[in-house]
């Protein structure tokens, strides 16, 4: 009987992915012939928990962001999931698919694709489908052997993705060999794009036919997003006290581009995406914005967050943040804990 109860409990926990591994920044995760690099980690609560149930440090789990660094060339079909456990896949490194040949590639919504990411890629299905993409590197689709379908419903950061790189570069052109296609409904997102004058659009049945052909008319292949979405069960916004109470902290966790200080002006500004060179030392860092309910309008951002168990505190724990101005500790009700000298 105990075994059955334990088995049920284990299954329940696993279903909400509580046993996901913790990784350090820079770690490599290998799964299904694809390698991912951990860019940044941060603390979240499980999405199934209400903010009111964050009882202590044990309620927090590590989440983070990944970049795809390698894809096995022998894979016929490549499925890049939107997340591995609680780690969201946010980008593709430089030259990830350079000179590869694949039948179909499924991509999730991504933040970036590195320089020459799909350069000289041969698509056996005849087309590569790119969903949401915030930023593109240089010559991303250089000599892509197939059509390029932007199945996006938001603006794309085109950058120099369709600009020609110098003659000495291995990227000599900037465009795919095939056609560049969009959904007519989303034309407003491409009006300022470098491919507006050179693209084809369709909608409804005709657009669906393009997408279906790109995935060899296999609807299951397109459903990967829906099936893998369950793995990404994180909640990035939580409070230290029940939401109804007019005290405590509301914490939003996530990541941002790291900032650098301009020696001339003394001001800090974010790094641009370095694409494949993303490491722990540069560019991405965890970021927690904290809103004190007593001072609602004041938002303070910190780089590190540590929930600390402390029996002397009310509720048995307190929160510690590390920012540019040093370490700050808060009680659960939002009051500062002053260090005793």
């Amino acid at each position: 009987m105990k075994r059955i109860v334990f088995a049920l409990f284990f299954t329940l926990l696993q279903s909400v992915n509580l046993f996901a591994d913790d990784y350090k920044i820079g770690d490599i995760i290998r799964k299904d012939g694809i390698e991912y690099k951990v860019l940044v980690t941060y603390l979240v609560v499980d999405s199934k928990e209400s903010p009111d149930t964050v009882k202590g440090p044990d309620s927090f789990y590590q989440a983070g962001e990944l970049m795809v660094t390698k894809v096995n060339e022998n894979l016929e079909d490549v499925i890049i999931p939107p997340a591995i456990d609680r780690y969201k896949v946010i980008g593709l490194t430089d030259s990830l698919f350079y000179n590869h040949t694949h039948n179909r590639i499924w991509l999730p919504d991504l933040m970036f694709a590195g320089n020459g990411c799909f350069a000289k890629l041969k698509m056996k299905s005849g087309a590569l489908v790119v969903h949401g993409m915030d930023f593109l590197g240089m010559s991303v689709f250089d000599e892509l052997q197939g059509d390029l379908i932007f199945d996006t419903d938001r603006a794309i950061g085109w950058g120099s993705s369709f600009s020609k790189i110098g003659e000495n570069s291995k990227f000599t052109k900037s465009r795919p060999w095939g056609l560049i296609k969009f959904n007519t409904k989303n034309m407003r997102f491409i009006k300022t794009s470098p491919v507006f004058d050179d693209c084809y659009t369709a909608q409804g049945r005709k657009y669906k036919r393009w997408i279906d052909q790109a995935f060899n008319n296999e609807s299951e292949f397109q459903k990967n997003y829906q099936t893998d979405k369950k793995a990404y069960l994180t909640k990035k916004s939580f409070t230290t006290t029940p939401r109804k109470e007019k005290k405590g902290l509301t914490i939003n966790s996530g990541a941002c581009n790291a900032k650098q200080k301009d020696p001339k002006t003394g001001k800090t500004k974010p790094f641009a995406y370095p694409w494949g060179r993303l490491t722990q030392d540069f560019y991405r860092q965890s970021r927690y914005t904290v809103v004190n309910k007593k001072k609602k309008r004041k938002v303070v951002a910190y780089n590190d967050f540590v929930p600390v168990a402390d029996a002397t505190q009310k509720g048995g724990w307190y929160v510690k943040f590390v920012g540019d101005e040093g370490t700050v500790k808060y009680k659960l009700n939002g009051n500062l804990i002053k260090e005793k000298e």
Binding site: T184, M187, D198, C199, Y200, T201, A202, K206
Partner: peptide, 24 residues
């Protein structure tokens, strides 16, 4: 031509048409 899609498509079900850029 998708530069003047709204003008051209009057009276036509837009779903029946594809568009192309000015260069094409």
């Amino acid at each position: 031509y998708h530069g003047i899609f709204s003008k051209q498509a009057e009276g036509i079900n837009k779903k029946d048409l594809c568009t192309v850029g000015i260069n094409i």
